[in-house]
Every structure is written in C-alpha cells, then in structure tokens.
Amino acid sequence: MSNGSQVPFGSRARVAAEGARAATLGSLHRQPAKVVALNRAFRVFLYGTVALALIGLAALLVDAFVEGEARLSLGLITDSTSRIADNAGFRQAILGSLYLVGLMILMVVPLGVGAAIYMEEYGNRESRLNRMIEVNIQNLAAVPAIVYGILGLAFIVRGPIDLGFMLFAGSITLTLLVLPTVIIAAREAIRAVPPSIREGSLALGATQWQTIRHQVLPAALPGVLTGVILAVSRALGEAAPLLLFGAAIFVTTDPQPFNSDAGWTALPVQIFSLAADPQAELRELAAAGIIIMLAVLLLMNSFAIWLRNRYEQKW
C-alpha cells in the first residue's frame, strides 16, 4: 500500500503520533512498573484473542482435510451427485451455488448501494421516518436465515410472487438476507469519504448526482466491496433457507435458474445432507465438499479483494 513517496494519510499520522510519543516519553521519568506491566498484559490478551480465532479456523480446516483428503479428485468437481461415493461429485452443487451467489450480487449491489446513497446523501437524518428505517435495517441484519427462508417460501415461491421452486427464488431470498449487511457497509464507506471532497466538487459546479457518481462512489468503492465480500461469504454458506426452497439432495442436471421445473441444489445443502448420511464414505464426501466450498469462497473473495485494492483511494 505505501510506496515511499505516497504514504497514505493514516499511516503518516501514525508515524507522527509514535514519534511524538517517543519524544514525550524521553523527556519524562520512566513510567511506573505497574502501568508498563498492564500495557504488556493487555497486549498479550489481544494476541490471545487473535490466536483463538485462528486456532478455531485451523482446527476446522485440518479436520476437513484429514477426513476429506481421500476423496479429493478432479471428479469431485465434474461429476454429478450420486449415492455411490466413488462416482459422486459436486458439479450441480458448485454451479448451483455460483448461480445463486452471482444472481444475488447482481441484485444486492445496486439495491444496497442505492439505499446507502439515499440514507447518507439525500435523506434527512433527523427525520423520524429515516431514523426508523435505520433502526430497522440494523435489526434485520440480526434476523436468523431460516426466517428469511419462511418469508421467501410464503411470498416468493408461493403467494403473491409465485415463482415456484426455482433457483432464482432462492437468489432473491439470499438477496434479502444479506441486503442489510451491504447497506450498513456501504453507508460506512460513503460516510468515510471526507466532506471536503464533496464540497470541492459542488463548489466547482458539479450537481449532487455528478458529485456522487464521480467523487463519492469511487472513493467509497473499497468499503462497499468489503460489504459485498461479507455478503457473499454469508450467502454461500447458507443452507437453512435453501432447504425450505426445495433445494434437492439428489439432482443430475445442471441448474436452470429461471425454470421452476428443474431441480437444483447448492454446496451447503449437499454438505448438510451428506454429513447426515448412514454411509461413512458419503460422510467423507461431506468433508471434501467443505474443502470445495472453502475454495469457491476463497476464489470469489480474492476477486473482490483484488478489485478493492485496485480501486483503493488515498487522500
């Protein structure tokens, strides 16, 4: 990020602050031992919290690899679902998950960013209505996935929208599920753009839309992408609402997102059902499925992270 001549504002400020602190400490007496010890203890505590998170992740990865390693092969990606472990693969599940998340991104980015722009740039933050919307969005972010599943089943699959059990209906529900996350992240990102940028743009005669389009959005893009990464990660691993949506455990044709007669499945659904199978071989397959899902997740996220770094703005 920092390359000599172009030290970003944040790190430049930190270097300055650290220098000032060293200078102050040098001119003062040594700090009391108790304060120094406390400082050290707190640092150890912080390392501990990070270590705990990493150990949990490592344990999960090792466990999945040890159990699923024997099943890892190219066929796992290209073969269809099967009851015979040696023939079984995740082709339909991988494609299903990609369609689900891909279609979801197409819907959630414009909706989420649009809502965030309205709330940050246009909406009157003092108005009662907008404050209510704000509280509700934050509450929605904490609603369990299965509740969205029930909502989707009643309103999208059946009921007023009546799409039937098509993959696209699952995509819409996942969109609703992650929309609050994207809105909150996008709002934070838009808010972090310095007001001087907007004021400068407006002062030069740009309209509000031109300011948003050419100054605010490009500057907020990395933050928005962070929100999208979180959204994709959550949506990709979500099985509960999809089970309600008629995601099948056995299907041998590639998904057709807009055909309500075509069966479809997704990676977490396959993993969930394989992990519950009586046959030990198929349970190994579930572990291999976890590895595949992690790989897909890593791929999608690294693409987003690459995009984010590419458009990172420095003030």
């Binding site: 099948a248 455990i249 056995f250 041998t252």
Partner: peptide, 24 residues
Amino acid sequence: APLTSIAAEEFQGENPDVNVTVGT
C-alpha cells in the same frame, strides 16, 4: 431418501433423459 436416490440414479442410467430430483 437414500433408497429413492439410488433408485433414481439407476433409473437414469437406463433413461438418461428423465431427470429425477430427490429432496429431504
């Protein structure tokens, strides 16, 4: 479901143009 799935799989082996899906 495991029984129906394996039935579906064998059946599709003979009738590749019939798509059977099994949910749980």
